[in-house]
Design a binder for these strands. Structure first.
Lengths: 209, 209
DNA sequence: CCAAAAAGTGAATAGTGATTCACTTCTACT
DNA sequence: AGTAGAAGTGAATCACTATTCACTTTTTGG
């Protein structure tokens, strides 16, 4: 026998894999998943087409991993904000702002994550992605209800509805067809989304717990 | 010369076209647009593949027409309800119920119209479809604000957010992956969606105009 | 009945892009 | 230096469907 896996090789392999993921991520950020054919990914990563398949079972699997990567960052930002200081209602507002502002900054990526038609395996990841947000919001709602800053409600439904409300409000402006928003319009949109969601969960005035 | 277009032939041609549309509609209702290949449509409509192309420029155009057909019915039902008797808030509740209940009854079709990845031409129609709902809701909001049953707000944004909230709340339960809802769960879901949206637009208690 | 024109047919073609695989190059160990 | 085994290669293949088009059938008015 002769060849044995060695740390150096392991590192090299991991690096190549990462280059493929990064190349895909770039291409998606530039033009969505539709922009990331295997041939293009290979070219950008400076590997042969076949090499992509040494590292990933299939294109779907590559996409799923890329989706997870991109998504994790976003979800974490929102989670951080939701877990920050202050009353639940203020945290929610701040989180909605973070979500919207980040989406508006990187509209192509946001659109790819939120709405681009891709394939079933990515759709599954997308479901999880939205689910992840919904769970974060749900926790926030539950706490807010306890402290009385939100009205009692079906938190499961409300959190899904919040995710939908944000997504739908953004999809129009984010879609590749639309021209971008200027700073003011982005600001206004962000605030209006936050207000809508806050109104939907706030308690009825004049009724204490 | 000899052949001239005659009422009889015109009718026949229209009937064939309609059979193609109906066949497509059926296939979409059964399994979404992905289930409706040209070959299958032709088979179901009992025409040759080529005949489909005598009536439609392309598959996309056929799909766009089918989408419009299916959509029109739904939008009209909601419009009727919104324009019914009673205060704007009650009409909105009723319309949200109609939307949700109909979607739950025909989940595959609803999913195809709301969320299924298809092609750019259908996506365009889908944009219009959501837009149509948004406009209906927007009119209702505007009236409700005038009569004081809703709080003053950015009606454009709120109507989009309502559409998103309904869609997102339903997409999970409607997706082909999910198993259907029983009657009670459907009822509950419907009510919770309506409540969420109503809370989002209602005025702050104790503040008159 | 006949010729002109349209409607109807479906096997063959074409476009796209993912996936394979026989082959080459590189690495690690004796 | 030799070699086992892995990593890397990319032209060729495959898979899937939409679309075409040469041909057949039907309809109609003379």
């Amino acid at each position: 026998m002769a060849y044995r896996e060695t740390p150096r090789m392991r590192a090299r392999k991991a690096a190549t894999r990462q280059r493929i993921v990064d190349a895909t991520l770039q291409l998606v950020a530039e033009g969505g998943f539709g922009n990331a054919s295997v041939a293009r990914v290979a070219e950008r990563a400076e590997v042969a087409i076949g090499s992509v398949y040494r590292h990933f079972e299939s294109k779907s699997e590559l996409f799923a991993e890329v989706f997870r990567n991109a998504t994790e960052i976003e979800v974490n930002k929102v989670a951080e904000t939701l877990n920050g200081e202050g009353p639940a209602s203020e945290r929610l507002t701040a989180a909605l702002r973070v979500f919207a502002q980040r989406a508006i900054r990187g509209p192509t990526m946001a659109w790819a994550l939120i709405a681009e038609p891709v394939d079933p395996q990515v759709d599954e990841e997308r479901l999880r992605y939205r689910q992840a947000y919904a769970e974060l919001f749900e926790k926030n709602l539950t706490r807010g209800i306890k402290t009385g800053v939100f009205a009692p409600q079906n938190t499961r439904l409300s959190s899904a509805a919040i995710v939908g409300a944000i997504a739908e409000s953004l999809v129009g402006p984010l879609s590749p067809a639309a021209e971008g928003l200027d700073g003011d319009a982005a600001q206004q949109l962000t605030e209006d989304i936050a207000h809508f969601c806050l109104r939907a969960v706030r308690p009825i005035e004049g009724e204490g717990s």
